[in-house]
């Protein structure tokens, strides 16, 4: 494929992405405060899902411990508020990413030695080490009560918190998250389309052959692990001000399961799948919680149906349909 051809094939995707972006920019103008905040949560989760999918979709590693990095991002912010009395969101973002990245770097050393189910269990076990610390070291972490985080100052204090907290979240903070979401998506797009990203896909497809074309499999897996953790940490850092509070629940492993859910729902074989999945899940959960106390049952049934009948997820299935419509007689 020549560079020109590559540019041509990416063009429709980028056009669609631009349309979606315009829609996202318009959200606070078109929808209620509550709905805008719901979208905002969706964007935050989408960042986590993007990071997660670098491992599952591109490197072929199924982690059940990403709550650790989300939680690390969140608790880093909360602890900086508690002990250092920081207020700048920019500082929180940087610290959250670094904190989660550091933990991922450490856990990664152990985890990337394994694949398949052992990788899954190991990531799970290590994330639960963090969870039990968040739970039990209550004099630091607040235990089950968690830690409160006030609304931060945005853009180097140029924007100070508005009077009304909801107003602030649905307007200024929404755009703040949107900007970081777009940036994170662009960076992840670059990463998966970089030579490094190709190397990860090669590892996913065939670890042995990857080694035999000169890709040092473990080292690349480790880098992917750290990048993935850092993205999820970014999501955690952005999530705290939105939620106003961080509790050990977000480090507990069902939260990792939720991130897995995002990615499977949207489809882990496509770049956009995790974003679609996170947004869709967020809506599904918000409404399921509103209608019934048995929302987990609803979600579980949806999940099982997706696994059974739509293994490509929402985005993957849609992409497949589009491709078939465009080319009635596939060459392959």
């Amino acid at each position: 494929m020549s560079p020109a051809a590559a540019r041509r094939s990416a063009a429709p995707q980028l056009a669609a992405a631009a349309l979606v972006l315009i829609g996202l920019v318009a959200v606070p103008w078109l929808f209620s405060t509550f709905q805008t905040i719901t979208v905002c949560y969706g964007l935050v989760f989408a960042i986590a899902a993007l990071g997660y999918n670098l491992l599952l979709g591109y490197t072929g590693l199924l982690s059940f411990g990403h709550s650790a990095y989300f939680g690390m991002g969140a608790y880093t912010v909360a602890l900086l508020v508690k002990y250092m009395e920081w207020t700048s969101m920019e500082a929180f973002v940087v610290a959250g990413v670094l904190g989660a990245g550091a933990v991922a770097a450490l856990f990664g050393i152990v985890c990337v030695r394994y694949t398949r189910i052992f990788f899954g269990i190991l990531t799970l076990a290590l994330s639960q080490v963090l969870w039990s610390l968040a739970l039990k070291l209550f004099w630091v972490t607040g235990g089950t009560d968690g830690l409160r985080v006030p609304t931060p100052k945005l853009f180097f204090s140029l924007l100070t918190p508005a009077e009304d907290k909801l107003e602030f979240l649905a307007y200024r903070y929404y755009y703040y998250v949107l900007i970081l979401f777009v940036a994170a998506t662009a960076v992840m797009w670059l990463i998966v389309h970089s030579p490094f990203g190709k190397a990860l896909q090669a590892i996913r497809d065939n670890e042995t052959r990857a080694e035999f074309v000169g890709v040092q499999v473990r080292r690349y897996r480790w880098v992917a692990f750290v990048v993935s953790g850092a993205f999820t940490g970014l999501a955690g850092a952005l999530w705290v001000p939105l939620n106003g509070l961080t509790t050990p629940d977000i480090v507990y492993w069902p939260f990792s399961g939720r991130i897995v859910f995002f990615v499977v729902l949207g489809g882990f074989r496509t770049f956009w799948g995790p974003i679609v999945g996170a947004m869709a899940y967020n809506y599904l959960e918000t409404y399921a919680v509103g209608y019934t106390v048995y929302w987990q049952l609803v979600l579980g049934i949806v999940f099982v149906l997706i696994v059974l009948t739509l293994p490509q997820g929402l985005a993957g299935t849609a992409e497949g349909l589009l491709r078939r419509m465009r080319r009635p007689a596939p060459a392959t």
Binding site: M1, P3, A6, R7, V187, L190, I191, H193, S194, P195, F196, G197, K198, A199, V215, Y220, V223, V227
Partner: peptide, 11 residues
Amino acid sequence: TRSLFALADRD
């Protein structure tokens, strides 16, 4: 393959 921030197809 060490470069994370370059489009492979542009090389």
